[in-house]
Amino acid sequence: KRLSEREFDPDIHCGVIDLDTKKPCTRSLTCKTHSLTQRRAVQGRRKRFDVLLAEHKNKTR
């Protein structure tokens, strides 16, 4: 699936709103397109961004 077609989940996706499409970014939490500050500011996550990021990195090892 293309990035734009993915169902957005704030707990596994970057989530920064794309200015062109007005939709949240569906790249992983480790997205290189958006800064850490931008990704931390995303609302609606179950846990703090840093906790989710650490969990994500542990899963992908």
Rank of each mutant, 00 (worst) to 15 (best):
R2P: 07
R2A: 14
R2I: 15
R2S: 15
L3R: 06
L3A: 10
L3H: 08
L3T: 11
L3Y: 12
S4A: 07
S4L: 06
S4Y: 08
S4G: 12
S4W: 03
E5L: 12
E5K: 07
E5G: 09
E5P: 10
E5S: 12
E5I: 08
R6T: 14
R6D: 07
R6F: 11
R6A: 15
R6G: 15
R6H: 07
E7N: 13
E7F: 13
E7K: 13
E7V: 09
E7M: 15
E7D: 11
F8Y: 12
F8I: 06
F8V: 09
F8L: 06
F8M: 14
F8T: 03
F8Q: 02
D9H: 09
D9M: 09
D9N: 15
P10A: 08
P10I: 07
P10N: 04
P10T: 06
D11F: 03
D11H: 06
D11V: 03
D11L: 06
D11N: 15
D11M: 10
D11C: 05
I12F: 13
I12Q: 14
I12P: 01
I12R: 14
I12S: 13
H13L: 02
H13W: 02
H13S: 05
H13A: 04
H13R: 02
H13C: 06
H13N: 08
C14I: 00
C14D: 01
C14Y: 00
G15L: 03
G15E: 00
G15C: 05
G15A: 08
G15Q: 00
V16T: 06
V16F: 02
V16C: 07
V16R: 00
I17K: 10
I17W: 10
I17S: 06
I17V: 12
I17F: 03
I17C: 08
I17G: 05
D18Q: 15
D18S: 08
D18P: 03
D18K: 07
D18M: 08
L19F: 09
L19G: 13
L19D: 08
L19Q: 12
L19C: 13
L19T: 14
L19A: 13
D20R: 06
D20V: 09
T21R: 06
T21K: 10
T21V: 10
T21A: 07
T21I: 07
T21S: 14
T21Y: 07
K22S: 11
K22L: 11
K22F: 06
K23S: 14
K23I: 09
K23T: 10
K23G: 10
P24A: 07
P24Q: 08
P24Y: 04
P24W: 05
P24I: 08
C25A: 01
C25G: 01
C25H: 01
C25Q: 00
C25N: 03
T26K: 14
T26P: 06
T26M: 10
R27W: 09
R27N: 13
R27K: 13
R27P: 00
S28C: 12
S28L: 13
S28Q: 12
S28F: 13
L29P: 02
L29D: 01
L29T: 02
T30R: 08
T30V: 10
C31M: 00
C31W: 00
C31H: 02
C31S: 00
K32T: 07
K32F: 05
K32I: 10
K32C: 12
K32N: 08
K32W: 04
T33I: 12
T33K: 11
T33V: 11
T33E: 14
H34D: 00
H34T: 00
H34Q: 00
H34A: 00
H34M: 00
S35G: 06
S35I: 05
S35P: 10
S35V: 03
S35C: 05
S35Q: 03
S35N: 06
S35R: 03
L36R: 04
L36S: 05
L36A: 05
L36I: 15
T37H: 14
T37F: 14
T37I: 09
T37Q: 13
T37M: 14
T37C: 13
Q38Y: 02
Q38I: 01
Q38M: 09
Q38K: 06
Q38A: 15
R39N: 01
R39F: 00
R39L: 04
R40S: 11
R40K: 10
R40A: 06
R40Y: 04
R40H: 04
R40I: 09
A41V: 07
A41P: 01
A41E: 13
V42E: 02
V42S: 01
Q43E: 13
Q43I: 06
G44P: 04
G44Q: 03
G44R: 04
G44S: 05
G44Y: 03
R45P: 02
R45Y: 01
R45K: 01
R46V: 09
R46Q: 12
R46H: 04
R46A: 11
R46P: 03
K47I: 08
K47E: 14
K47M: 11
K47Y: 07
R48D: 15
R48Q: 14
R48I: 05
R48T: 15
F49M: 05
F49G: 03
F49T: 03
D50L: 03
D50M: 03
D50W: 02
D50C: 04
D50I: 02
D50P: 02
V51H: 11
V51R: 10
V51Y: 06
V51K: 12
V51C: 07
V51Q: 15
L52F: 02
L52W: 03
L52T: 03
L52M: 12
L52H: 04
L52D: 03
L53R: 02
L53N: 02
A54V: 08
A54I: 07
A54Q: 12
A54E: 14
E55P: 03
E55S: 06
E55H: 03
E55N: 06
H56Q: 09
H56F: 11
H56M: 08
H56V: 11
H56W: 12
K57G: 14
K57E: 14
K57A: 13
K57S: 08
K57Q: 13
K57Y: 05
N58A: 14
N58M: 14
N58R: 10
K59M: 13
K59N: 15
K59A: 15
K59I: 15
K59V: 15
K59L: 15
K59R: 14
K59S: 14
K59H: 08
K59W: 07
T60N: 12
T60P: 14
T60L: 12
T60E: 15
T60R: 04
T60D: 14
R61P: 08
R61V: 14
R61W: 15
R61T: 15
R61N: 11
